[in-house]
Design a protein around this nucleic acid. Structure first.
Lengths: 335, 335
DNA sequence: GCAGCTTGCACAATCGATTGTTCATAATTA
DNA sequence: TAATTATGAACAATCGATTGTGCAAGCTGC
C-alpha cells in the first residue's frame, strides 16, 4: 500500500549495523576478497532478501563505467524475420549476462539516429544495427562515444557486418522458380521482380542473383519487369495493379522481395473474390509460416537467423572492429 | 580510430573555462533560471556539439531519481498481436518522452520474474506486463520497490489491467462461425474449440463466450470437443491428429484460440498434400494477414491494439493504481 | 560614496554503488 | 614479552549530472 521506496545498501548497512562498502561487497560477491566474515555476510544477505533489495544498476554502472547493456535497432517487429532476430538476440544477450534493449525504428532514418542517441545516453556497451537505412551514420555517432557497432542484415562500411548471402539466395530461389515452371511444363520466360528499394544493398544483390539465374537458362531478364516499389503492402498491390493494366498478361513466375510485399500481392490477387495469380509460381525472399501455407506454388527463402546471430555474437564477444562482411547462406523451403 | 572516450560536462567545462554546474544547466535547459548569459550558453552548446557530447543518463537518473524508462514484458514477438503491441508501445512511450524497454519472456514464468527484476535494477518508472503467466507476482515484486505495474492482455488482481473483451469477442466469433455454417446450409452442431490453456483467464472467458453462443442457438457444447492443448503449433497439430483418430469425423466448424494454434492446425490439415479441413469453417481468436488469406472460410478476431494501448497509457499517465480491469472490444474480420 | 539590488556564475553536496586505503584488534612468531 | 602478521571491517574518493547556496562584480538610487 505505502509507496515503498527502493532500499539501498545503506538501508541494509544500518539494519545490519555495518557499513555501505561491506554490504556492497557482500552483495556483489567480492566479499571473500575483502575478508568479510561468513557470519556477517549471511546476516547482510538475509536482510537484503527481507527488504527485497535490488541493485541500482544506474549507480553501479556509473561507478564501474560499465552498463552491461547491449542495444539493438530493428526496423519492425511485425514480420517473422525481424521478430525472431529480436527474440533470439535477447536470449543470446541474456546468456552472456548482458541486458538487451531492442527498439524498433520503422525504417525511419531520423528515428534510427534518435534511437541510437538514446541508447548512447543509456550507456550501451555495444549497438547492433539491423536493417538500418544508414548504418554508417550510426557507426560514426557511436564511435565518437567509443561504442562499438555491428551491422546485421545490411552491410556498412564502418563496422563489422553479418548479412544473408543475398546473391546466392536469390540465385537459388530464382532457379527454383524456373524449375517449378519447367515442372508445370511452362515455356521459360523472364520473371517479375517485385518489392524492395533499388538503392538498398540487399535488393541490389538479390537482383544480381535474379539476373544471373536468368542468364543461366539463357533468358534475358526484362527491365520493365523489375518493380522495386519499396516495402509496404499497399505499394506492391498498387504496383501490380498498374502493371496488370499496362501489360496484357502477368508472367507466370514472380520473385517477391519480402513478406510485406507478398502480403500486398496476395491481397491484390484475391481482391473481389478473384484469383488473379492462380497458377503463378511465386518465390519470396523471406519466410512466414502462414504465407508458406497459402499455396503449393510458393517457395520461400528463410534467412538463417540463429546462424547469423551466432556469428554476430562471435564478433561482439571478441569485440571485433575489423570491418568485414560475413555472409550467411539462407535456407530455401521447401527443399 | 582511437577509442574516443565519452565526453562529460567537465570536459566541456574545461574547454569553455567554466564550471560543470553551468554546463549542466545549459545543456538541460535550466540555464535561464540560473541567469547564465546567452553568450556563455551559446559557447557551451557549440563545444558540446563539437565534442559530440551525449548526456549520461545513468548519472542524470541517479541524481534526479528518475530514469525516464518505461518497461514492457511480452511473451513473444513473433505474432502480429504481440509485435504490434511492442511496436505501438514504443512509439507511444517515445511520444511521452519516455525510453521504452521491451523484453520478451517466452511464456516462461521464471524468465518473467528475472526480466522484471532486471528492469527494476535499471530503474524503470513503471512496468507493463503483457500476457504474463503470473502478473500478480510481478506486481508484488515491483510494489516492494515502489514501481507501478500495469497488466495488458491478461488481468491481474494487484494492478490496473487492460484486456480484450474475450467473452464478447468469442461470443461474436462463435456466432459468426455458426452463421457461416448456416449459409453453407449445414445443420448446426457443436463446434470444436482448440488451443489455449484451460487455466488462463482469456481462455476461460473465451470458452464462456463459445458456450454462450452455443446456448443461443440451443446447441449443447460438447465437453470432448474442447481441446485446450496450450500454445504451440506442434501441440495443436498432435491434438487434432489424436482427435481425428478417436472421432470418425471432425466437426465442420472450429474455434481456434490463437494464430499459433491455427498454424499447427493448418499444417496438420495440409500434411502430405491433403486438405483435411476442406470446407471446415474456422474462426480464430487472433489475427494474421496471411492467415486471413488462407481461405474464405477463416474468420479472425483482431484485438484492438491501438485502443488498448491508448487506454493503457491513460492509466500510466495519470499514475493510476486503482485496481480495475478495462475491457476493449476486439474487431471481427471480415465484417 | 555607500547601502542594496541584480546579474552571472562557481562551489559543494548529493544520488547509490564500488574500490583503494587505513586501522583497530586478534593471532602468531621470534 | 615485544614485534610481526593476519583478520575483519570502516573510511573516503569516485563515477557524471543536478541543484541549493554563496559570492563577487556591476548597477541603481539617495
Amino acid at each position: 500500500m505505502q509507496p515503498t521506496k527502493k532500499s539501498t545498501i545503506y538501508d541494509i548497512a544500518n539494519l545490519a549495523g555495518t557499513s555501505g562498502s561491506t554490504v556492497s561487497a557482500v552483495l556483489n560477491g567480492t566479499w571473500k576478497k575483502r575478508r568479510i566474515s561468513v557470519k556477517l555476510a549471511d546476516r547482510i544477505s538475509k536482510i537484503a532478501d527481507e527488504l527485497g533489495y535490488t541493485l541500482n544498476m544506474q549507480a553501479s554502472a556509473l561507478r564501474r563505467e560499465k552498463s552491461g547493456i547491449i542495444g539493438m535497432i530493428v526496423p519492425m517487429y511485425d514480420n517473422r524475420y525481424f521478430s525472431s532476430i529480436a527474440q533470439d538476440f535477447e536470449q543470446m544477450a541474456r546468456q552472456r549476462g548482458l541486458f538487451p534493449i531492442v527498439t524498433c525504428t520503422r525504417r525511419d532514418p531520423k528515428l534510427e539516429m534518435e534511437a541510437a542517441r538514446a541508447m548512447l545516453s543509456y550507456q550501451v556497451e555495444s549497438l547492433v544495427c539491423t536493417g538500418a537505412t544508414d548504418p554508417d551514420c550510426i557507426s560514426d555517432l557511436c564511435r565518437a562515444s567509443g561504442v562499438k557497432t555491428f551491422n546485421l542484415d545490411l552491410p556498412g562500411q564502418k563496422a563489422p557486418s553479418v548479412i544473408s548471402n543475398n546473391f546466392e539466395g536469390a540465385f537459388a530461389l530464382t532457379r527454383s522458380i524456373f524449375k517449378q515452371c519447367r515442372e508445370a511444363e511452362l515455356e521459360l520466360f523472364p520473371l517479375l521482380f517485385v518489392g524492395g528499394r533499388a538503392g538498398d544493398h540487399n535488393t541490389r544483390e538479390r537482383l544480381r542473383g535474379f539476373i544471373a539465374a536468368h542468364e543461366e537458362v539463357a533468358i534475358q531478364a526484362k527491365h520493365e519487369y523489375i518493380l522495386t516499389c519499396g516495402y509496404g503492402a499497399e505499394k506492391s498491390a498498387d504496383t501490380l495493379q498498374l502493371f496488370s493494366e499496362t501489360n496484357k498478361n502477368i508472367p507466370s513466375g514472380m520473385f517477391v522481395n519480402s513478406t510485406i510485399t507478398l502480403e500486398g500481392i496476395m491481397r491484390w490477387s484475391n481482391k473481389d473474390g478473384k484469383h488473379r495469380l492462380k497458377g503463378v509460381k511465386l518465390g519470396c525472399f523471406d519466410w512466414d509460416p502462414f504465407a508458406e501455407l497459402l499455396s503449393e506454388h510458393i517457395l520461400m527463402v528463410r534467412q538463417d537467423v540463429p546462424e547469423m546471430l551466432t556469428r554476430l555474437f562471435e564478433l561482439i564477444d571478441r569485440k571485433s572492429s575489423k570491418i568485414e562482411t560475413i555472409e550467411i547462406m539462407p535456407i530455401i523451403s521447401p527443399r
